[in-house]
Write a protein that binds this DNA or RNA. Structure first.
Lengths: 238, 238
DNA sequence: TTTAAAATGTGGTAAATACCACATACTTGT
DNA sequence: ACAAGTATGTGGTATTTACCACATTTTAAA
């Protein structure tokens, strides 16, 4: 075990610093205190590189990054380690596993740098109180929003990477952005390398395919500004 | 507009038939009635093939399939239509979009056969009551469970399809199952075609790669029963 | 049991992609 | 303006995969 210490959260401690955390959004100071008390809140410190949670284990706690940052990693059977996401201050992790019963973690959570984590037990949201407290309701409601938001990102990516060809992935992605912005021209939030990583393809192969699509008149782009030919499908299927 | 009719839900109507619906899990008859009343529940019927929701639009309602079934579909810029999922009686759809504000749908929802849908407005969970009712708490709590469960499935698939090679996808998938079952031998819930679809690869290419891996001694399989060589990574990285 | 139907495996080939090396363009700081 | 560093594009090649046709095995039905 590393040098982390268990620190039972003292409710007398100030709650101002938790104001910006999405999980506690919309809570009064009293509701925040109630939450922390009932969630069996514990602070723990970790040194860079140590594991907070391991794949194959289970957890009844979710974690909130108070300082520093953690990475969500996955190691396959060959030992290849992939960083799935990076979570900084205010961010939450393992909430999906903590909300469900006995789900085995498929990923590792590791300290990307020295960090302080607030662990919160989800026991109290698993029982069904006859008269729910306002802090309970708001907590679960906030969790739902966080979960739904993550859901949207995941299903989007799952859809964008579904096609077997680079062209298909690019078109699926650009089509989504087009629907979201309700426009045929838009900026994307990725550079080439990031877009390639997002679509799970090689960067140079992506550049080549983008160039080909531009020559064919399907899309236009310059840096991270893209345009798609409107009604492209109408021309292909007249 | 098709032949669907708006039917304001009458709270006097029996609630027994809603008992098995996950969204209403753990609710008393009174809580169920309260929910239906406050959620502005409306029944609508659709003929096979008609669209319930269209990509590019927004919705403040989630839908519950009371009878029949619907498909979640996606149409790309080239007109290729992909069926993303199939939702039968008791199933819920569009809840992610309905819970978040003004999110544009990236998929179509279409009647797979003649069906009856219960639409529920999510307005009442968006405001923050000072004293939450028990039906409100249970509803949001159930939504959270549904969302978290879906989240787990989505992140799993996203991870399993991340590798660029078929072998990598297969190993990622089998490793997950191995962690979940805490075993080196297990049955998978897919036949070859379904596994290929899940991993976004060609079925015959999958069969070939599986055969190659078996010859190399990495895995064993027979039909849908698979085994992985324990500590495979230790041998590769001694 | 026999037959049909479905699931799975295999071979061959064209197409797509990853990967490498490197050229060009753009950005930033001095 | 210049240089250094980063981002992006291109050419060539080996690898991987999709796709087709078809063999084999397994399951279901008659």
């Amino acid at each position: 075990m590393p040098d982390d210490r268990d620190n039972r959260f003292a409710s007398e401690e100030g709650t101002e610093k938790y104001k910006g955390i999405p999980l506690f959004h919309g809570m009064s100071p009293e509701e925040l205190s109630d939450s922390l008390a009932h969630l069996d809140a514990r602070k723990r410190s970790y040194r860079k590189g140590t594991f907070l949670l391991r794949a194959g284990s289970t957890t009844r706690c979710m974690g909130i990054v108070l300082s520093g940052s953690v990475t969500i990693e996955s190691t396959d059977l060959c030992g290849n380690c992939t960083i799935l996401s990076h979570i900084g201050p205010g961010g939450i992790f393992a909430e999906t596993y903590a909300c469900l019963e006995k789900e085995v973690l498929l990923v590792d959570v590791r300290a990307n740098e020295d960090c302080v984590i607030l662990f919160l037990s989800t026991e109290c949201i698993k029982n069904q109180p006859s008269v729910p407290e306002s802090w309970q309701y708001k907590l679960v409601r906030n969790l739902l929003m966080i979960s739904a938001r993550k859901n949207l990102l995941l299903s989007g990516r799952s859809f964008h990477t579904a096609s077997r060809t680079i062209r298909g992935k690019v078109l699926a992605y650009l089509h989504s952005i087009s629907l979201q912005t309700r426009s045929d021209a838009f900026d994307i939030p990725f550079d080439r390398q990031q877009l390639a990583d997002y679509l799970n393809v090689d960067r140079t192969a992506l550049s080549k395919e983008l160039g080909k699509m531009k020559r064919e008149g399907i899309i236009t782009f310059r840096r991270n500004h893209f345009g798609i030919r409107p009604h492209y499908m109408d021309e292909i299927f007249p």
